[in-house]
Design a binder for these strands. Sequence first.
RNA 1: GCCCAGGUGGUGGAAUUGGUAGACACGCAGGACUUAAAAUCCUGUUAUCAUUGCGAUAGUGCGGGUUCAAGUCCCGCCCCGGGUACCA
Length: 991
Amino acid sequence: MEYNFREVEKKWQQYWAANKTYKAENQSAKPKYYVLDMFPYPSGAGLHVGHPLGYIASDIFARYKRLKGFNVLHPMGYDSFGLPAEQYAIQTGQHPEITTKTNIARYREQLDKIGFSFDWDREVRTSNPDYYKWTQWIFIQLFNSWYNKKTNKAENISTLISCFESNGFKGTSDDILTGDLEIYHDGFTAEEWKNFSETNKEQVLQQFRLAYLSDTMVNWCPQLGTVLANEEVKDGVSERGGYPVERKLMKQWSLRITAYADRLLNDLEGIDWTESIKEAQRNWIGKSEGTSLKFKVENSSAEVEVFTTRPDTIFGVSFVTLAPEHELVAQITTAAQKKAVDEYVTFAKNRSERERMADVKKITGVFTGAYVIHPFTGKQIPIWIGDYVLAGYGTGAVMAVPGHDSRDYAFAKHFDLPIIEVVAGGDLSKESYDAKEGKLINSDFLNGLEVKEAIKKAIAVIEEKGLGKGKTNFRLRDAIFGRQRYWGEPIPVYYKNGIPHVLKESELPLMLPEVDKYLPTETGEPPLARAKDWKYEGKYEYEYSTMPGWAGSSWYFLRYMDAHNEKTFVSKEAVNYWQNVDLYIGGAEHATGHLLYVRFWTKFLNDLGLIPVIEPAKKLINQGMIQGVSSKIAMKKDISVTGMKIMSTNEKPNDVAGLVFISEDGTQQNVILPNDVRGIFYSQDVLSDKEMTVERPVDINFLIRSIDSNYSSVDLLQLTNWQDDFKSAVYICKKSYFYKGVWYNLSGQKIEKSDDSFIVRHEVEKMSKSKWNVVTPDTMVEQYGADCLRLYEMFLGPLELSKPWNTNGITGVSNFIRKLWRLYHNGDAVNISNEPATKPELKALHKTIKKISSDIENFSFNTSVSNFMICVNELTDLKCNKREILEPLAIIIAPYAPHIAEELWNRLGHSESITYASFPECNESYLVESSFNYPVSFNGKTRFFQEYDLSLTKEQVEKEVLTLEQTQKYLEGKTPKKVIVVHNKIVNIVI
RNA sequence: GCCCAGGUGGUGGAAUUGGUAGACACGCAGGACUUAAAAUCCUGUUAUCAUUGCGAUAGUGCGGGUUCAAGUCCCGCCCCGGGUACCA
């Protein structure tokens, strides 16, 4: 009887669920191991074959660790707040909670079918009040904290208040309190503080709180009706939906992640994450060290402060550029230039982010008419405004050194400003010389110094003269935390006299209220403003924005440790036992979003003494993307057709009746198309000029036959019945066309059938519902079984590589599973012998044990599958049915194919699950060879093989080889110059 | 532009510290079994030349180099994928 995977897989999935086989305990004598997958967002499309890739890998690892005697925590849950469910709610009026529940149920069903060893008792959902209660609680801790630069830790805001009460505040230069943070508040004395109004005090405190309210430039997305964080914006459009994003000044909740910039950067050293992710985070944090420097404005008390990393080039400054939004712009602009400046500032403000990024190359700017005085030469230097200077970085002003900065160079060239050479080594007539190498020239006291020394000296002189001081800047911005959306965690804040107050812990969770519509109010307030009678203590307004999607996922790894605790977000005992994640698997697309925020929150919670770890995950593996193959149908434009030319195609739907073809012999053919034709699609093999076409995706389920890897033919009947605009469309093929289920020849006469195929093009891209190229695991599981899907996804190639999905090799894996089954059976009956195993059998097993162990440790799951195949092939050839071999084999294969392994284990006579068996150790003595078949090569080219006993020394092998008849043949009578013998490896004879 | 990862048969991909390139699998071709098909099993399969057999030559994106020996190390370049984008 053949292996019945349907029955067996179902049986064991039920067994595991009923027996809670994968339940993890919070205490154990065993060492702990925590394997975590990145949270899925349960979208309406369900899981596609790309999702399980990482889950299968982590599941193999988790199962392996259990077999190795570890107490394994391997949980799963859902990141269930978010935009898609809400967008769906807006369209249909259905509560997002219902959509979310349905989607989760579908995910769960799909996950269960693949046989994952999750401890489902620990499932969490970010949208459940018993979960978001603690997300809100952490927000309150952030609100009640400030970052003390002296201790380099977050502390309760009360320590800051007592500092104000005793010492007051010295203003932005109060290093001890502000460090590198930009605090916009004047200094005050202790006495003044005590007399401040509550409002005034809170204004000051908002400058320090880790969760704070401020007027910030935000990424506003009008179509989504919300602000977005920097990493949710890609190329000037929203990551979800692709809607335009504009800059807007709004009062917003933000998190002061910048306080942690240095630690987020430095602590990367201590974690075993992929270098690419670490590098992406380093770039995102963007630390740069330089100096601030003040330039006095001529005939004014104002000063322009700039930030530069190249103070050595101070004598190369030929102008100063301000960002259009710079506060000094209005103040310093001369009357003569006012009009030009105002126009420019308006222009710059109205340009969308998208436009600005699209024409990076386009240089724009205007002269203010004002000048600064060079602090060393005393010369006049013009002040310009340019939008290549960003208001949000540094001081929003730069000292332009066109000789040694390519952006300044481009600006200077464009507006014909002087270019001064101060570092020797470049050719300034062609381009700026940006390298930090060479000797300083034309630079007074810096002349002759190397750039690095000059930087040091310049900073020293600048500081000495009180013109500025050494300073570090980060590219990282504070994270905007409010979203003007419904489906998210309510921010636990209410307003009393305009001052924000947080809720008491006992008042949590602040439940998401019911609303009549999921849209903003008429006055533009977020959806929560629609909630009826939703007021704190019946009178104070709540905050109407909700938290962003990443709030819940910034601490979920902790909740899994203690998922049902009602007293605290995670108990001390649980977190002290589980510490942090040992292995985290997920996509690289979260490099600068989730993975940065979760590190930030972890450090913060550690500062407060709530958890013992400073990093969420010790090791991180990125799985590659499984791409989909979409199929593209061609339409439109003036067409050249192979063998004929279509002359006029005014493709207005009602104007295609008189298509004129010119056939190969040059005669015109007037094709009469019916009047109600609503569109024309072209088979890809009739198009010779791809430039003239546009394409749209069609459902890959309509494909019938693959022509080659780039093209397939499509089922026109299915396509015609698909969507409205396909129903009354004409499908043009080489010799005929298809319309409403009927074929016509090109003269417009009905024909019985056509031997034409309608061809669509393939394209490899991200799997997505909108591209109609999604392949779900369900059909795979149905057809081949979960074990086969698991093995096949691993067999496809290295985990971290992206690859398009194809099922070409699936039969190989399926055959392997059947072959494995047959090894344990003779016909229908289990056939196991208790005889001792032979040497070749033991060798086949133990070399596999060795290989599989090292493969798993190195996350090289694809080679494991190959090695299982080799092992089973060898044992099949040896006709091995010995218990001594087949029992350990079942165990080592169990992490990969748990269902069949359980069944075989059971048939071997075990009543317990294979999950807690112990992984066999490799016995090296079975692998020891007594001889080696040496490849004998001449000048590095292998010619033949010769077997020698391994006890032979190098010298003996050399002597033996030289006596061989074959050797003599290749020597052709010459004497070898040199003979290299590498023991157990190779013989190379140099002639 | 910058940063990161890649480039090996018709395809997915193997290859410890430099040491037999192409494991394993798909596909393809031929064969066995079968009334037939499916399933299964066997043989072959980098290219070119030669072929009765033995074999010869080339070959891991391209061009150089180091070495007895290079897919692997070094230098220069090309191509594809991902990230990032005026960060002073």
